[in-house]
Design a protein around this nucleic acid. Structure first.
Lengths: 201, 201
DNA sequence: ATGCTCGATGCATTAATATATATCAAAAAT
DNA sequence: ATTTTTGATATATATTAATGCATCGAGCAT
């Protein structure tokens, strides 16, 4: 298979993984069979443009034809625009943990009517999903998760939730501070749809 | 056919026309049958990625997947980078006239050993091909062309050539002055391959 | 008027994608 | 330890891009 095709295939796969979607989940949304997605990502097929567009759509990507002379500039734009999304947060473990957090939160039915800490927790989590989390932050996320689960099983009260929440806030602040150029973009960037239906193909 | 595909098709066609290539010429270079190129440009086929890449290659384009959030920035980059190439010079008549000039020049066999004005003429023409020529400049080009042909038929001497050359120089200067931002790029931008084999499919 | 190039179209054939469905081993979650 | 999920793979079929070739009318030039 041609080099360029594999390049695009890699981009597709990377985007899918970052979005926390399984091949099957992507399959449903894009209307492309999972088997075919597998072949595409492996670069074993010369896919049609419609397939590429269908997949790109779901992955918030756009198929573009850019002049060769503009490629470097475009690359730098793309890098700076989706850099944190791509590089810093590409650690699979971190992504997984974020999903886990989201799911345990979804498993608590008193989020809306329960203590307000839970809602704040939810909001905090949503913000974190947009931040360039590195692998070093994994532990903090795990702690928050176990705190949440402890509360879910009623093994602890709202105090622990509040403490975990505070931890997440400090985490958020420490990260948001180190990259201001990124912070400017954060309002424009479409939020990940990590919220709905994560990783269940 | 999907909207996005037609969009890409339009881009391909536009790039081809601007480069002064016929479908048949593009066909030879890209290894794609002319009939198929026709269908592609009309948006009546769901082309494969390999076809798209093959065509884009010849047209100095790159197939890219850009994040939706970065699309506006990328568009502005592309516009400013290939703006003159795209907008100002897209007048078909101007392109035709440039090709005509080039061909009449090629029809003169004493370019290399003849009067030095011819060589300068050639060089000047080459520079003009990289400039954002508008429709208003058409007359000047036609004048230059007729002057060249008159010399070819030995109906005039080198004086007329020199005068036409001078006209082209002033034309060049007047254009180059009004856009400095563009002038900076002009060294980096790959020259059009209008030089070799123009419009003979 | 003649000839040439252009893009579009038709047709037959080939080759490959796309799809539906099912299965498998490995990783992950319970 | 058991169940679920995930990605890769297999088979069979339908759809269609891709190719080669021929042709057509329109525009342009000689």
């Amino acid at each position: 298979m041609a080099y360029e095709i594999e390049e695009i295939a890699k981009t597709l796969q990377s985007a899918r993984v970052i979005k926390g979607l399984s091949q099957r989940a992507l399959s449903e949304r894009a209307g492309v069979p999972q088997a075919h997605i597998s072949k595409i990502e492996r670069g074993t097929v010369d896919l049609r443009l419609s397939s590429l567009i269908a997949l790109a759509r779901v992955l918030d990507l756009e198929v573009a034809l850019v002049p060769r002379s503009a490629v470097p500039a475009v690359q730098s734009i793309v890098r700076s625009s989706s850099g944190p999304t791509r590089s810093a947060r590409s650690t699979p473990a971190v992504i997984k943990e974020l999903q886990r957090l989201h799911q345990t939160l979804a498993g608590i039915d008193q989020v809306t009517n329960g203590p307000k800490e839970l809602l704040q927790f939810q909001r905090q989590l949503r913000e974190l999903q947009h931040l360039p989390l590195a692998h070093e932050h994994l532990a903090a996320l795990k702690n928050a998760n176990s705190a949440l689960e402890a509360f879910k099983k009623q093994q602890s009260g709202t105090e622990d939730i509040r403490r975990a929440l505070s931890n997440l806030q400090t985490l958020r602040n420490s990260i948001a501070h180190q990259s201001d150029s990124w912070a400017a973009n954060t309002t424009l960037r479409p939020a990940y749809t990590l919220d709905d239906e994560v990783g269940n193909g």
